[in-house]
Deep mutational scan, measured.
Amino acid sequence: NITNLCPFDEVFNATRFASVYAWNRKRISNCVADYSVLYNLAPFFTFKCYGVSPTKLNDLCFTNVYADSFVIRGDEVRQIAPGQTGNIADYNYKLPDDFTGCVIAWNSNKLDSKVSGNYNYLYRLFRKSNLKPFERDISTEIYQAGNKPCNGVAGFNCYFPLRSYSFRPTYGVGHQPYRVVVLSFELLHAPATVCGPKKST
């Protein structure tokens, strides 16, 4: 009989979030998941669920729940959905087409922007091929755009693959930082360890 609440607040209220290319994953298990708490945590810009209804979450049980978190800019949030393409979905964080879970995003301009520009958040701009779903690539190998090998040196047709967002508070919403948490629900042929409040007794 599990009584402890799932530590969603640790994920959502973390002081620092990860850069999207090096997104963070927390496995959540053996706890009571009260998803209604999430609705009250922040004024969400996005709370979209796929393959599951957000209002039914509190009635369900899962084997595992994974919470992935990272920062992107406002106009990239739409890429965090099944079947999307674009720089983020292709080279940084890719959801599977049959994704079961929820994408939660909110504006973090007050936390993640600086007047002089916050350069701490990076994204991958160049990659030889698209990522597979939930693949994480943290390599910093020089990207070869031409025929000549780069031998690890940046220059003509040889690019450092990561680029930094420079978040400034005066930017338009599309270029402001957004914190994203992706909850993916895993149903294996194994005992369910993460249940809503109704199912945990």
Rank of each mutant, 00 (worst) to 15 (best):
A154G: 11
V115S: 14
D75C: 08
S200P: 13
V65Y: 02
V194K: 10
N107M: 04
F126Q: 13
Y123W: 06
K110E: 14
E186V: 01
R163Q: 12
F12I: 07
S184P: 00
K132W: 03
V103Q: 00
D59V: 06
R73S: 10
G155I: 04
R78Y: 12
P82V: 01
L111K: 10
C61I: 08
L41N: 13
L5G: 10
R136T: 04
G74D: 05
I28C: 06
Y165M: 05
N130E: 11
S116T: 13
S184M: 08
D68I: 01
T15P: 14
C150S: 05
R25I: 01
Y50F: 09
C49A: 00
I28Q: 02
P161N: 03
V115M: 12
L38P: 03
I2P: 10
P96T: 01
E10V: 07
V52R: 02
F156P: 15
R136S: 05
K199M: 14
V153C: 09
V180C: 08
V115C: 08
K128S: 13
Q79T: 03
V77M: 05
N118P: 11
S200K: 13
A33I: 15
W23D: 04
I88K: 02
Y91F: 13
N13G: 09
K114E: 14
Y66I: 13
L60F: 08
L188A: 14
A14R: 08
Y119C: 12
L162V: 07
T85Y: 07
E135H: 06
Y66T: 14
D97G: 08
H189D: 15
C158E: 05
W106R: 01
T100H: 10
T201C: 12
Y123F: 10
Y171D: 15
F126N: 13
N64I: 13
G86F: 04
D98S: 09
D137A: 02
I2Q: 13
A192W: 10
N130H: 13
S29N: 11
V52M: 10
K128W: 05
E141M: 07
S200E: 13
S36K: 11
C61W: 08
A89Y: 00
G196E: 11
R124F: 03
K110M: 09
E76G: 01
I28M: 15
S200T: 14
Q79L: 01
F8T: 02
S116L: 11
R78V: 11
V115E: 15
L183C: 02
P177K: 03
S113N: 11
N64H: 15
T63L: 07
V71L: 06
P7N: 15
S166W: 07
E10L: 07
V77K: 02
L57K: 04
F167R: 02
C31S: 05
D9G: 11
V180S: 00
N30Y: 05
N92F: 02
I88C: 00
Q176G: 05
R25Q: 02
D112L: 01
R168F: 10
V180F: 01
A192Q: 12
N157T: 08
Y66H: 07
G155V: 05
V181H: 01
Y39G: 14
K114I: 10
L111F: 11
R16A: 11
V153F: 10
P149W: 06
T170K: 11
F167Q: 06
K199D: 13
L162R: 02
P96H: 00
W23H: 04
T63M: 08
Y66D: 06
I142V: 13
E186F: 00
A14L: 05
G86L: 06
A22F: 05
A190T: 13
G117F: 04
K48T: 08
T63Y: 08
C49I: 00
N130T: 14
S139I: 03
A14I: 05
P177R: 02
I88H: 02
N13S: 06
Y178K: 02
R25P: 02
F12C: 03
P82D: 03
T46A: 10
S19A: 06
I142G: 07
I72G: 01
S19D: 08
